[in-house]
Simulated scan of single mutants.
Amino acid sequence: MKNLLYFIVIGLMIYGCGSGKDRDFTQDQIPVMANDTVRIANDSLEYEIIIIEPGFNLFINSIARPRGYHTQTYLENKNRFLVQEYNARVMSPQRYNPNLYVQEINYDPNVDYGYEVNYLLYNYFVFFSQEYNQRFSVPTRL
């Protein structure tokens, strides 16, 4: 299956540990706790988004703005810039913490991923910026 969007973030609680090992995470190597995982998949569109982050499920269900608050166009525009900056940070491990920026996000702004994927991706950036005190050039505040 061709993945247009494959997003894995794991092990951010290992923030203080500096590991020199290769960060080649595969699905079966990731310890998953049901309450800390948000997964959306659509085989017909061939995309998948997996967010494995302690506290994100609580954030999305209680703190984040409700679904429908922002339009899909708004979320797509924000995600386009946020993904670009996030990926630039992944490619600069000497400047940004490689324990926070683990893997690139494959997000094509020309693909219609639907509202739910854009909603979760945008809110992940809001959560990430608040949880780890990271500032992106595009405002992500609630």
Score class of each variant (00 low, 15 high):
residue 42 N to E: 05
residue 100 L to A: 05
residue 97 N to G: 01
residue 20 G to V: 08
residue 37 T to P: 07
residue 91 M to T: 14
residue 19 S to N: 15
residue 115 Y to A: 02
residue 88 A to R: 13
residue 70 H to K: 07
residue 90 V to R: 00
residue 10 I to P: 15
residue 25 F to C: 09
residue 40 I to S: 10
residue 116 E to T: 04
residue 5 L to S: 05
residue 36 D to S: 09
residue 89 R to A: 00
residue 28 D to C: 00
residue 70 H to W: 08
residue 114 G to P: 01
residue 116 E to A: 01
residue 66 P to C: 06
residue 81 F to S: 10
residue 99 N to G: 10
residue 62 S to Y: 04
residue 112 D to P: 01
residue 125 F to T: 04
residue 101 Y to M: 02
residue 108 D to Q: 10
residue 22 D to N: 12
residue 97 N to Q: 12
residue 123 N to T: 03
residue 105 I to N: 08
residue 83 V to Q: 02
residue 6 Y to H: 10
residue 81 F to H: 12
residue 7 F to D: 07
residue 103 Q to S: 12
residue 117 V to Q: 04
residue 45 L to C: 05
residue 91 M to N: 08
residue 81 F to E: 09
residue 8 I to Y: 14
residue 68 G to K: 06
residue 6 Y to P: 00
residue 94 Q to C: 09
residue 18 G to Q: 13
residue 127 F to I: 01
residue 20 G to Q: 10
residue 39 R to G: 09
residue 39 R to E: 06
residue 136 F to K: 12
residue 119 Y to M: 02
residue 81 F to W: 12
residue 88 A to P: 01
residue 21 K to A: 08
residue 63 I to R: 14
residue 44 S to G: 07
residue 79 N to A: 07
residue 16 G to L: 12
residue 96 Y to V: 02
residue 137 S to W: 15
residue 85 E to C: 09
residue 51 I to M: 01
residue 114 G to I: 04
residue 104 E to K: 11
residue 46 E to S: 14
residue 65 R to W: 06
residue 110 N to S: 12
residue 51 I to L: 03
residue 100 L to Y: 01
residue 72 Q to F: 04
residue 102 V to T: 09
residue 44 S to I: 15
residue 37 T to S: 05
residue 138 V to S: 11
residue 4 L to M: 13
residue 22 D to V: 13
residue 122 Y to T: 02
residue 26 T to K: 15
residue 133 N to S: 13
residue 38 V to F: 11
residue 121 L to Q: 02
residue 103 Q to F: 01
residue 109 P to T: 08
residue 133 N to F: 08
residue 90 V to N: 05
residue 126 V to W: 04
residue 52 I to L: 00
residue 38 V to C: 10
residue 105 I to Y: 01
residue 132 Y to M: 05
residue 81 F to V: 05
residue 124 Y to C: 07
residue 9 V to K: 08
residue 17 C to G: 13
residue 107 Y to E: 00
residue 89 R to N: 06
residue 3 N to A: 05
residue 55 G to V: 07
residue 35 N to F: 10
residue 75 L to I: 02
residue 8 I to D: 03
residue 33 M to E: 15
residue 78 K to R: 14
residue 58 L to V: 11
residue 69 Y to M: 00
residue 40 I to E: 07
residue 130 Q to P: 05
residue 38 V to L: 13
residue 87 N to I: 00
residue 27 Q to S: 12
residue 15 Y to D: 14
residue 58 L to Y: 14
residue 38 V to K: 13
residue 92 S to I: 04
residue 101 Y to I: 04
residue 26 T to R: 15
residue 116 E to V: 08
residue 54 P to C: 07
residue 78 K to W: 06
residue 3 N to V: 11
residue 126 V to S: 15
residue 138 V to P: 08
residue 70 H to S: 12
residue 121 L to E: 04
residue 68 G to R: 03
residue 141 R to W: 14
residue 47 Y to I: 01
residue 47 Y to K: 00
residue 77 N to K: 10
residue 112 D to C: 03
residue 16 G to C: 14
residue 25 F to E: 09
